[in-house]
Design a binder for these strands. Sequence first.
RNA 1: GCCGCCUUAGCUCAGCCGGUAGAGCACCGCAUUCGUAAUGCGGGGGUCGCGUGUUCGAGUCACGCAGGCGGCACCA
Length: 644
Amino acid sequence: MIELQFPDGAARSYEDGVTGRAVAESLSKSLAKKAVLIRLDGELRDLDRAIEAGGKIEILTRDHPDALETIRHDASHVMAQAVQELFPGVQVTIGPAIEDGFYYDFARDEPFSLDDLVKIEARMKDIVDRDEKLVREVWERDAAIAHFKEIGEAYKAEIISDLPVDETITVYRQGSWKDLCLGPHLPSTRHVGKAFKLTKLAGAYWRGDHRNAQLQRIYGTAWASEDDLAAYLTRIEEAEKRDHRRIGKAQDLFHIQEEGRGMVFWHPRGWTLWRTIEAYMRRKLDAAGYVEVKTPQVLDRTFWEKSGHWEKYRPNMFVCETVEDEVLSLKPMNCPGHVQIFNFGQRSYRDLPLRMAEFGACHRYEPSGSLHGLMRVRGFTQDDAHIFCREDQIEDETERFVRLTRTIHADLGMTAHHIALATRPEIRAGSDAFWDKAEATLLSASRKAGVEPVIAEGDGAFYAPKLDFIVKDAIGRTWTCGTLQLDYVLPERLGAEYVAEDGSKQRPVMLHRAILGSFERFLGILIENYGGAFPIWLAPVQVVIATITSDASDYAQDVARQFEAQGLRVEVDLRNEKINYKVREHSLAKIPVIAVIGRKEAELGQVALRRLGSTDQTILPTAEAARFLCDEATPPDLKQRPVD
RNA sequence: GCCGCCUUAGCUCAGCCGGUAGAGCACCGCAUUCGUAAUGCGGGGGUCGCGUGUUCGAGUCACGCAGGCGGCACCA
């Protein structure tokens, strides 16, 4: 007999080898009907699998959040079965559940077409209707390999061969179709339901390695109910509306053209956004004790040889030559340049920590397939800085940086999600003692700044650990913005030194750090975060002054001058159009404030303010409106904090 | 870079089985001066991504190239 404890604390005894289904039946008929999985001591298991030992048990119904992953996983199996029924000879590989859905990778010489997806989806629904039982079988290793080889499933056979010898090999059978799988699965295909949809077709490399064969991946989404599926599809549509490339075009912010792939042409409005953020960043860096520099865009090959980039980074560099046979490269990074400034003349320990910032424009040759709007470009400007310091200053500098980064992200409307501490990778330089110390320093500095980092095991750089700042946007997506990386190597390579208190020459440590990352990417994120409706301090056009009648034109120009005198970014719309038309157009353009001016306002020296997203209007004397809006449009770091 | 899909007016898109292009918005002109999400009428605008081929004839079919998009890989 075994004893099972239920979530409510009750415990009951059962025969050895009782199934989850039998346990559910012992509790209630209706529960047994709805049950699809059990959780035994934290592990999800098939409902019909024998329970060999007692423990904590929970019976999950189909609508339980944790059942969703299994629905998706099962959907991928159903898809694989559908594909093999429709296209005999296609090999299956792997097909996991992923966020919002699932995929399965197939090996097939002919490409799948979008029409095939429709057919596959229809066949999947058939299989769901057939209500095939999903049966778990434990196979002997060699027999399993032989079986999959025999039926021509070379990839499956390879997977089993690579499993550890003591691993239990399980095969799930649904009708006549079998797949190697760890499980667990739902009791039968009916439970998958029909709230799924095949969404896209893509290439993917076997085991994620570009040297391997390219497989065809079919992606799908699957949900517990039709409502959830519909909600997901609307969510995707909403996200598409926020696409920065679409908004960039609609709001005339920037463009990219064929002759400059990955290079951005910033239009006046987009550049205004850029300048607003750059000015803000510059104030924040000044206040945080940074000095700003500017280093050359192009430097000789010999320079990049010294820095080590020529050897390691060459494929990503834009190299150019001159008529005098010099070979030069556009800078892919700012750090070596900053070391040159550090090295110019003599440095004393009194100069440290030296925080050297640059809005540094870099060029990197990124693979063509990776380019993506503003998010991944070849020419970009980093909010880069290098902190030269003594080893004992690392902790304090890190703590300051964590605090600074958090306030900046918050000011720019991004919610902090977490900080990742990327620890030693398997292939690394430096002793374990060095890594122990470096990781401990970053950890304790984060804690001092009031943040508990999430450990990203093995994600560190070759030379040292780093901190990554992950933020969340308005629709819950996360982005890595901001990083801090320790570097003992570059100062060594480029011979950076300072004179210590005892007169000896010492090597400084460098902290590479960025808060936004690149302006291009950050602006892309910002555009998507706000869906183009920027807060007034960031909006390229803050106020549109729209007239109702041409009689008010002169007064409208006068109002514009008064607003501009307060530093507001203003446009005037005197067109011979109805006010409805103007309000609609500027609202769609996401202008934060429309100042409507008719004959009445002109006579009384007033403006009627209408904010984006509201139909109310506030009528104010012009001078008061100017002060009021100016106050509201003040960047967060310049706002007067109320005194407590 | 790899796989798949896409490319028609400034923008968003239609164009069936091949018979030399069409809408809405935008733009220009005229009328209208109208109080908070589209005033009416008129007009201009296209080497149908580029190239080659098939054909009496190609936006439409075939092949190649380029760019874009979605993934994969890459991402100091």
